[in-house]
Amino acid sequence: MIERELALTLKKRLKKFPILTLTGPRQSGKSTLLRNYFPEYAYINLERPDYRHLIMNDPVGFLKSQEKGVIFDEAQRVPELFNYLQVVSDERNIAGQYILSGSQSFLMNERISQSLAGRTSINHLFPFDVSEIGLRETVFDTIYTGFYPRIYDFNIEPGEFYPPYIQTYIERDVRTLRSIENLTTFTRFLALCAGRIGQILNLTSLANDAGVSVNTAKSWLSLLEASFILFRLQPYYKNFNKRLVKSPKLYFWDTGLACSLLDIQSAKMVQSHYLYGFLFENLVIAEIVKLQSHKGYNRKKTYYWRDNNGVEVDCILEGADGKLHLVEIKGGATINTDYMKNLTSFPVRGLGVEKHVIYTGDKSLTMGDVEITGWNGLIKLLAQLSEK
């Protein structure tokens, strides 16, 4: 079994909270992690109707009869359970009583805010990160394959895994979370989002292309975020007087999923695709954010920067000490002095700023005050950046 980075964080937090909550995309490995790292806990999958019926016949009696801890998987299937968990956990007043898991963050968070606020530690498990699974032979293969555990556990081709995964997500999660009448339109909207990877979000343009209202586009984007399909990277605009772009950029949590939506059918197609540069940028930024989450850090300190003249820094990490780590991400395999141009244009300079360029070549070196990292050094650098 491949070790999961988040497991250590979960074990530590379980000693501090009566309830631990674990959410993340469907098939990211939540059930496997919990069953393997917490074998002393009883495991109950609430997808099973018989378990739901048994528990809800006498919820307080059932909870009090469990002398050891309990894992409730797909906990959002029994929303009434959260109220009883509050009562019983408060009566016992000890840490590590229950673990809740589910793939629908929106429903989980809604129940938690109503019943378990302050009583649970909320954690997110994403597909494998690069520290867990490593990189594949080429950047193109890494982008195309993605990081979902089942692909690696059962040696499934990405072209066989992602289409049914997307179909299941739309038919199950989307129907559960929103009453969307036209799933075909929603599927087109999802593909249009993939076509905007790494680009500044223009809601009006996205809504027009999808044939929906701006309010509908907003609602659907929130749905895609709540179900861990994509995320928005916010701009960095602190302490600057000049006009800056203040709209977020779109990224997907998994590049393999994005490739499937873009109808990319092989690693070779990634190499020649017009969005290759953005896909590589997506890979790096998603890995930084995933590593932060799996290590228990705060991902809100990750940004991008762009001024009104189009000068842009792909990724900015703000450390707890206020230090800024600027990262330019380039899909080329040959070092180019133009790669450093935007870093020198950033308005903050001095000891409080570190500058990095990530590219896909073999060599890593330093040029002036810029650290240049190639493909072979990517895992080490991403681990360092995620800890900043």
Rank of each mutant, 00 (worst) to 15 (best):
L33N: 00
K238T: 14
F346E: 06
L365S: 02
R188Q: 12
Q384Y: 10
T302G: 12
E281Y: 03
K15W: 08
N57R: 14
L206P: 01
L192P: 03
Q104R: 14
T185Y: 08
D129V: 11
F161A: 05
P158R: 12
F278H: 15
S28K: 07
T23I: 14
L261K: 09
Q167L: 09
D209G: 07
L190H: 09
T360M: 09
F228Q: 05
D173M: 09
L351H: 12
R119P: 12
G332E: 06
F231R: 04
F106D: 06
I2Q: 15
S222I: 08
Y162Q: 02
A333I: 11
T255W: 05
H325T: 10
Q104G: 05
S105K: 15
V78Q: 08
S31Y: 05
T373D: 04
S219T: 15
I372R: 00
V60A: 11
E91D: 11
L382I: 14
T176V: 13
T21V: 14
I197Q: 02
Y297E: 13
N376L: 11
R119I: 12
N282E: 01
H53A: 15
T142F: 08
G102C: 08
R111V: 07
F228K: 03
I112A: 02
E328L: 10
L283Q: 04
Y169H: 07
F231N: 00
V327S: 07
F72A: 04
F240H: 11
F161D: 01
K301H: 14
N182V: 08
T176R: 15
Q199M: 14
E328R: 06
A210D: 09
G61N: 10
V370Q: 01
G159W: 04
K388W: 12
V270G: 01
K295E: 11
A383D: 13
L365Y: 04
Q76L: 07
I112G: 01
G24E: 01
L183C: 06
E5Q: 10
V174I: 12
L324D: 03
Y339D: 03
W305K: 06
R92H: 10
L224H: 02
H294K: 05
T185R: 11
L190E: 06
L100S: 01
E110C: 07
Y339G: 00
N308R: 15
L257K: 00
R178K: 15
I71Q: 02
N298Q: 11
R136N: 12
L343G: 00
M269D: 06
L275K: 06
Y37Q: 14
Q66M: 15
C193Q: 08
V284Q: 00
S205Q: 14
T21K: 10
E371I: 11
S213P: 06
L343N: 00
T145L: 08
S272P: 06
N298L: 10
V370W: 03
V270P: 00
G198P: 03
D263R: 14
K268G: 13
R172W: 09
F346V: 07
C259K: 11
Y43A: 13
E47V: 05
I55R: 01
E371V: 13
T138K: 03
C259T: 07
Q86T: 10
R299P: 15
F228Y: 15
S222N: 15
A191V: 09
L190V: 13
L324K: 04
K380P: 02
V357P: 00
E328T: 07
